[in-house]
């Protein structure tokens, strides 16, 4: 860890440093502030991993206990739609990282373009998810007590759908949250608030977005491809 930022005495700051509105008063330098934000975001991502992780652990153990039911149940999912959504998310990750890159290079227009592209990908993902859910609802492939699919050869398939809906549902909520955050960043980008000195929000939202992508990278084979 670099201590360079700390060796210089902190400036005696009034409420907010008048000359630079993006530097908060309790930080001495931009680098110190940027590093702090970054570590804060990573810690938050760590908690996200453990939050989803609980679901993964529950899924893993229930899968071990009811493996036949899980295998039978996953045939109700459409691999092609899952694949499509994986590709959409991967592309959105790429547009996101390009947005961050553009912001760091002071390219305002490119930043805006890439952010819009990312938002579009997120919307496509949710649309596909909407059709998938609709199909499940129609067939009665619902979680827990609402499961009403007829003619199952293997019992207990409702547990798979409990996990399917909880995992993809929580993930979809994260996508929605990401879209809200991205719109906020987009607005700032349009107004030209970012510069190569300060583009922390783009960077942080990017990190978050990649994590959402990363989680899907695991969800896809676990839910759609188990055998």
């Amino acid at each position: 860890m670099s201590e360079s930022a700390l060796t210089a005495p902190a400036p005696r700051a009034p409420e907010h440093s008048g000359h630079d509105s993006t530097l908060q008063h309790h930080f001495a330098t931009h680098e110190q502030q940027f590093d702090a934000s970054k570590i804060g975001m990573w810690l938050f991502l760590g908690t996200e991993i453990l939050l989803f992780g609980g679901l993964f652990v529950g899924y893993g153990l229930m899968q071990a206990a009811h493996s036949e039911a899980f295998v039978a149940a996953h045939h109700h999912l459409d691999k092609r739609l899952g694949f499509l959504n994986t590709v959409v998310l991967l592309v959105s990750s790429w547009t996101m990282v390009m947005a961050v890159h553009s912001a760091s290079k002071d390219r305002r227009k490119a930043t805006v373009r890439y952010l819009i592209a990312t938002l579009a990908c997120a919307a496509i993902f949710l649309c596909v998810k909407y059709f998938e859910y609709g199909h499940k609802f129609h067939e009665g492939l619902l979680p827990g007590m609402y499961y009403s699919h007829k003619g199952d050869a293997v019992p207990n398939q409702f547990i798979f759908f409990s996990f399917y809906f909880m995992m993809t549902g929580l993930h979809a909520l994260h996508i929605l949250g990401g879209m809200v955050a991205m719109s906020w960043v987009l607005r700032k980008a349009v107004r030209g608030e970012f510069s190569s000195t300060w583009y922390t929000p783009v960077d942080l939202v990017g990190l978050y977005w990649h994590l959402v992508d990363l989680i899907w990278i695991y969800l896809f084979p676990l839910l759609y491809l188990i055998s």
């Binding site: 860890m1 670099s2 590093d35 970054k38 570590i39 990573w42 810690l43 991502l45 760590g46 908690t47 991993i49 453990l50 992780g53 990750s93 790429w94 996101m96 990282v97 990017g206 990190l207 990649h210 994590l211 992508d213």
Partner: peptide
Amino acid sequence: FMHLRYDKPLNALVLLVS
């Protein structure tokens, strides 16, 4: 994408510990 390759190792450490 998340720049861990270039970032301060502390951030990667957080991920690894999680």
